[in-house]
Design a protein around this nucleic acid. Structure first.
Lengths: 177, 177
DNA sequence: GATCTCATGTAAATTGTTACATGATTTG
DNA sequence: CAAATCATGTAACAATTTACATGAGATC
């Protein structure tokens, strides 16, 4: 389990509201961690109860008050303990491949359509990641140094998406012939 | 959710026991779907209650009796309905990347060690998949035709692992300098 | 003698998803 | 005027993981 640690990591970088975190999972770091807002809010409550994070309230008119969460001393400790202990390689569960595996049960066109749909989605993701990469490359060298680790995860996202798209092209060619 | 469909797909190809399925998830199709034995047995029970699969018992001496499950008419229908409806792109939750993202909180050596450990694991997986590919390529053309779809999923596994390893090399180089 | 494979399960805990709920402000 | 964004949450359900449980035969 690492939603806990994902949140701590994000809060270590910058104090945020639940809504902020949710957005980060949707955009910023969605290529390696995903969580819905319901999950985020509940986890924040739990982390707060455990004393790993604190929050201060900023009142707003017309909107619900903002709770701005930040990592606590204890949270920092938890993080550095976690950082120094090994994590297991993650496992994939990919419904598209289950479908493709049983491709003989469907129509060729249906399968090609599905592949194309997923291809579009992966292309969009890739383009977004490439834009992030350009931003990084536009930074002055000392800033690049600072953000090296996040950049490396970004590279993983990019190489992963590119590999996916190469595969999809290969697969489509094979299916068509 | 597609453990249900993953099981149906595997049973459509070949009637199996829970133990057989478990092994298939561990080895055969583990590069795109994973499930533990507890999950498999429970899901089999559920699918049986829903009438999507049936089983016959083979008695054994010294070992628990085998329940050999096969897909039912209704299960076949469920499968073809599912095959013809779109699935969502899968989302990754990768703890290693969470860790790497917060790399500045750990030691360089610790991170490089962790990367190397994961590299070993991915290398093993890749080698295994390449062996499967060789088996496929040793088949006569008509058999290759028959197993084209499973082969395409295998290709996804291979390209995915290769991309992972390329990334890891790149990342290690960047971290070291 | 210890560990691995075969073979099945139950129970509890944790994690993740879907649905429900509210309400103002901004954008198209 | 409809939809998206901001901002928070609860509740129910589904999926997954971890722990517990048994026991024979094979391998090291």
């Amino acid at each position: 389990m690492s939603l806990k640690h994902a949140i701590l990591v994000l809060l270590e970088a910058e104090s945020s509201t639940g809504y902020d975190l949710m957005r980060k999972f949707k955009q910023g770091v969605g290529y390696f961690w995903n969580a819905k807002h319901q999950q985020v809010y509940q986890q924040l409550k739990k982390l707060n109860n455990e004393g790993l994070i604190n929050y201060s309230v900023r009142e707003q008119s017309g909107k619900p008050d903002k709770k701005i969460y930040s990592i606590s001393e204890q949270g920092q400790q938890e993080l550095s303990t976690w950082i120094n202990s090994p994590v297991k390689p993650s496992k994939t569960n990919d419904a598209l491949l289950v479908k493709l595996y049983a491709g003989h049960l469907g129509s060729k066109d249906g399968i090609l359509d599905e592949l194309t749909r997923h291809q579009d989605s992966h292309t969009k993701t890739l383009n977004y990641l490439l834009k992030l990469e350009q931003t990084y490359q536009g930074l002055p060298p000392n800033q690049q140094q600072k953000y090296l680790y996040p950049y490396l995860t970004l590279r993983r996202g990019i190489l992963g998406e590119q590999a996916w798209l190469s595969w999809a092209q290969e697969a489509q060619k094979e299916i068509k012939k």
